[in-house]
Structures are given as C-alpha cells and as structure tokens.
C-alpha cells in the first residue's frame, strides 16, 4: 500500500476524515516496521497513533501528522507529531485523566496513548491549538 516512500524523510499526512485516520495507522505501521520495532511495540505505537489521530480529527477539527524515523546512535525509533489549530485544551491535567471525555468517547485516547509510548509531549492551551509529539524506541 505505501511502497516506494523514502523513510529517511519525514512523512506527512493530512487528517481531515475517517479514512485519513486509517492512513495514519498504515503510515505509522510502515515506519515502525522499518525502524525494527518489535511486534508488540509496533502494535502499541500504531494504537497510540490511531487514538491521537482521531483526537486531532474530532477535537481539533482536523490537522496533520508527521512521522519520522529516529536514530539516536544506540536505538532506532518512530517520532510522530500531531498538530491542529482547534480550540486547544484548557485543562490538560483533566484531559489526561482516564475516563474524562468531552466528546462522548471512553476518555482513554489521550491518557491511554501516553501509556503506550516512551516519550509524550503536549503543547496546548485554550485557543491556540494542540501539538502532540510522541516517540517510541526499539528495545
């Protein structure tokens, strides 16, 4: 499906629809396989990406994602940046609480995704959109 892409370059994908969320999963899977993540770690990072891509679509009103292969000299990994210019998150501690939702979901997307990755950084605030950076390293 995603053959012939140059994985040494960051891969960008718009998130505007349901189908784009599926494309994000497939893109992250391709990069995670190339970075030699174990099957469990591939599954975790793809699941986290699916949650965050859906948040970008549902809460951020759409946005974009960038997936990059990382290499810190010792390990390879996958870094994914989700960005939207939606309303932002006013109370981040609350948003990161298991079970809290404003959208009628299960309230596990943000908190669950954070547990599934090695590094999780979020830059947000009321009225200034949301930018989430996650990294998963090969073991």
């Amino acid at each position: 499906m995603t053959t012939g892409i140059d994985l040494s370059q960051p891969q960008a994908q718009a998130i505007r629809s349901d189908e784009d969320v599926v494309r994000v999963r497939q893109l992250v899977r391709t990069v995670a396989v190339a970075a030699k993540l174990s099957l469990v770690d591939q599954t975790k990072v793809v699941t986290a990406a699916s949650e965050l891509a859906r948040n970008t679509l549902v809460y951020g009103g759409g946005g974009s994602v960038e997936v990059t292969t990382m290499d810190n000299g010792r390990r390879r990994g996958v870094r994914i940046v989700f960005a939207d210019s939606g309303p932002g998150i006013a109370d981040l501690d609350l948003a990161l609480t298991d079970g809290y939702t404003t959208g009628g979901g299960l309230g596990l997307g943000l908190s669950g995704a954070r547990r599934l990755v090695d590094e999780f950084d979020i830059d947000t605030g009321a009225g200034r959109g949301t930018r989430i950076t996650v990294t998963k390293w090969a073991r």
Binding site: T47, R115, L116
Partner: peptide
C-alpha cells in the same frame, strides 16, 4: 497486551 495498557 496493548488493549490492557491502553486501559480498555
């Protein structure tokens, strides 16, 4: 494994 860690 992932489902459990996700909290589902």
């Amino acid at each position: 494994i992932t489902l459990v860690e996700l909290g589902l």
